[in-house]
Design a protein around this nucleic acid. Structure first.
Length: 728
RNA sequence: GGACAGUUAGCUCAGUUGGUAGAGCAUCUCGUUUACACCGAGAGGGUCACAGGUUCGAGUCCUGUACUGUCCACCA
């Protein structure tokens, strides 16, 4: 053994040893009667490469998996990647535009998809390489991709079943339209940005009795009503009256309505209702049976006949304001700050538009075809919202840390129907065909002629929502599905609780009639030394591979979990990783000391007894560390487990007992027993540390004399630490 | 506007049923010994944001205040 531990000399070889052992696949584990234990990896987006944040989730999940595997569970960890529809297409389109000055329509659907596939293949290869370098003991034979053939099959089947249950419906509604990306997006893909804006107060015409206020005067050519609060004494006398007038060259028919949603104290207390270009206005319109008048198109240009026609909304706004000034209708112009809705991926300003789209109806009640969920019977009438609430409320699913429950329930309370159709090309095509007014929804195209498939694709979260069971073979009744579902832990970032976790719960309860997972473990964000959020879009984000090269995968892993609690953001500094590299080296040298003391033939199959006080103390200390580490892992406190192991290994085993052993080894009456205790402590410590620092512990274990670890398997010459029995 | 966190040693953070304040890094002193200088022995450093309250006892529970951060909603 060299004097200092050099990770680069060993890691690749050790990973190969594990991979070739076949034990990443639970079907090959020696204990086939063990309880199944499952984690499905949150699939990273195929848009980039992994950063330190991904390194954190890989580490945490690998710790759980390795620990359970050592405990004799049939531990399954399925790796995968996400096609991330909008994110990926946007990314590739940007690149093509920059390099070739071409847009998606110049290339055409087939060519764009071919380019995206190439891009994705390249990034998937990089990412799986990174996962291996981290030491991830996932089952590569079951690797999945959200857009591969099996997952596409699951998506089509899921769509059809939900459609047949009446939970998916095509409807003409106001949706979030991204004029830049030329697609609809869901409420969750909106990012609000605070910006100053002008709030204009004016009347439609000289004769109109009520002034209204708006930041978007150009939309007023689409107004059909003015809404006031029912209790507003100023306006009560006008309610029910109708006015015909001409606004900026456009004839308008305005009805005065009373609606509770209007705030008396904001602006003039009266709202110009534009049903076609505002969600809230559409709701008012619905309540009062008002018609819609669309005046803006998909390119954010005015469609209304007259002077504004064809103009961009920003220009039209200036024109309308100028007209108001000329006509002396403008009463007030003030600057306010307000939140502007933009698309998460393209940055485009959202234009609410009425469109015919596909929706998942979260408040629609249906008879659940099958339920193994406690408190929900097969064929019971439920809604998706109720299912999502029930499984968390009844604690069939636990969230760690618990405080995130509040967020979850709050999100569900505010949840509206989910728009799932997208006008982008990359993704799962909607399995619906049209012929005139006829619909055909099935997993395969209709046999007869004349049908045309819906050109749209599905929101990427639709396929991600199926992830925990589509990776296990659903809709087929596979052995995997029976064995490994529901899964045990969903380990992911708290950021993604709504986007993803909630949707997995929705899909799984409705389609499988089970919970997707028993525990949701949420980790925090990893920030760099400047407290900046790491993200794949930033070029300067530390590549885990660089850190591994510099400090070793074990040091990186230990630094990521050391002293950072679940659900809490943490800062990863090179100093911290360096400290953990020192720890790996310390362990290495403990091993060098123990193994250089002639331990060949020492029997550690039975637990040693202490002779001296030092002996007794270290054995007690070890016992306590075993108990504590196991308890901490059981309760998802990895940071405490890591801390405990660090303290024991360095400051108890090395600093105290090894020092004491030096004199004991000189004493003939104590010599043999001391060796036994040293070797026993080392061997046990390696097992306890293995889930956290798999490489160095495995390397050291291979240095044990053959007499200590003869292989029980045909697959290896020596026992593999990875499948040794956990000390408790 | 609503919700949730955080505020503990110079820095980064732990501290789960309330019981005499902890770790890593950094600092200072000493030290070369069957492993390790990526080391050892030792030391300094905190009225646990603030103000009340409950309690024999509060970093930990309750109320309020201040600052920082995050999420959700979104006002036309």
């Amino acid at each position: 053994m060299e004097k200092t531990y050099d990770p680069n000399l060993h890691e690749k070889e050790i990973y190969k040893l594990w991979e070739e052992s076949g034990y990443f696949n639970p079907d090959n584990l020696p204990n086939q009667s063990g309880t199944p234990y499952t984690i499905i990896m949150p699939p990273p987006n195929a848009t980039g490469i992994l950063h330190a944040g991904h390194a954190l989730f890989l580490t945490i999940e690998d710790i759980f998996i390795r620990w359970r595997r050592m405990q004799g569970y049939r531990a399954l960890w399925i790796p995968g990647t996400d096609h991330a529809a909008i994110a990926t297409q946007t990314r590739v389109e940007k690149e093509i535009l920059k390099k070739e000055d071409k847009n998606r329509y110049d290339l055409g659907r087939d060519e764009l998809l071919r380019r995206i596939d190439m891009f994705v293949a390249e990034h998937r290869a990089i990412m799986t390489g990174q996962m291996r370098a981290m030491g991830s003991s996932c089952d590569w034979s079951r690797e999945a991709f959200t857009l591969d053939e099996k997952r596409n099959h699951a998506v089509n089947e899921a769509f059809k079943r939900l459609y047949d249950l009446g939970l998916i419906q095509r409807d003409f509604r106001i949706v979030n339209w991204d004029p830049k990306g030329q697609t609809t997006i869901s409420d969750d893909e909106i990012v609000y940005k605070e910006q100053p804006a002008n709030l204009y107060t004016f009347k439609y015409s000289k004769d109109f009795p009520i002034a209204i206020a708006t930041t978007r005067p150009e939309t007023k050519v689409g107004d059909v009503a003015v809404a006031v609060h029912p209790d507003d004494a100023r306006y009560q006398k006008f309610v029910g009256k109708e006015y015909d007038l001409t606004f900026c060259g456009t004839p308008l028919h305005i009805t005065i309505v009373a609606d509770d949603s209007v705030e008396k104290d904001f602006g003039t207390g009266a709202v110009g209702v534009t049903p076609a270009h505002s969600m809230t206005d559409a709701e008012i319109a619905k309540r009062h049976n008002l018609r819609w008048s669309q005046v803006i198109d998909e390119r954010a240009r005015m469609t209304v006949a007259g002077p504004l026609q064809g103009k961009k909304v920003a220009e039209a706004r200036e024109d309308v304001v100028a007209w108001l000034k000329t006509e002396e209708l403008l009463e007030k112009e003030e600057t306010i700050t307000h939140n502007i809705a933009t698309a998460e991926r393209t940055g485009g300003v959202i234009e609410p538009l009425p469109k015919l789209q596909w929706f998942i109806r979260v408040n629609q009640s249906f008879k659940i075809p099958h339920s193994a969920i406690q408190g929900i019977a097969t064929n019971q009438e439920v809604t998706l919202k109720q299912l999502m609430q029930h499984v968390v409320d009844s604690e069939q699913i636990n969230i760690v840390p618990n405080r995130f429950k509040n967020n979850y329930f709050h999100w569900i309370d505010n949840l509206r129907d989910w728009c799932i159709s997208r006008q982008i090309w990359y993704g799962h095509r909607i399995p619906v065909w049209y012929k005139g007014e006829e619909f055909y929804c099935d997993i395969n195209p209709p046999k007869d002629e004349g049908w045309e498939q819906d050109p749209d694709t599905l929101d990427t979260w639709f396929s991600s929502g199926l992830w925990t069971f589509s990776t296990l073979g659903w809709p087929d009744e596979t052995k995997d599905l029976k064995t490994y579902h529901p899964t045990d832990v969903m380990e992911t970032a708290y950021e993604i609780l709504f986007f993803w976790v909630a949707r997995m719960i929705l899909m799984t309860t409705a389609l499988v009639g089970e919970i997707p997972f028993k525990t949701v473990y949420l980790h925090g964000l990893v920030r760099d030394e400047k407290r900046q959020k790491l993200s794949k879009s930033k070029a300067d984000s530390a590549d885990p591979l660089d850190l591994i090269e510099k400090f070793g995968a074990d040091a990186l892993r230990f630094a990521l979990v050391f002293n950072s609690a679940p659900g809490t953001d943490s800062i990863l500094s090179e100093d911290k990783i360096k400290g953990m590299k020192h720890f790996a080296n310390k362990l290495w040298n403990i091993a060098r000391f123990v193994l250089s003391n002639g331990v060949e033939g020492v029997d550690i199959t039975t637990k040693p007894e202490g002779i001296t006080d030092a002996d007794k103390n270290i054995l007690n200390g070890l016992e306590e560390t075993i108990l504590k580490t196991t308890k901490y892992l059981d309760t998802f406190q990895l940071h405490e487990a890591a801390q405990e192991l660090y303290q024991f290994t360095w400051h108890t085993l090395a600093d105290i007992y090894i020092e004491a052993s030096k004199s004991q080894l000189q004493d003939e009456t104590q010599k043999e027993n001391t060796k036994k205790i040293l070797l026993y402590c080392l061997s046990t410590t390696l097992k306890l540390l293995h889930p956290f620092m798999p490489f160095v512990t495995e390397v050291i274990y291979r240095e044990f004399p053959l007499s200590q670890n003869p292989s029980t398997s045909l697959r290896a010459e020596k026992k593999i630490l990875m499948i040794e029995k956990w000390p408790l």
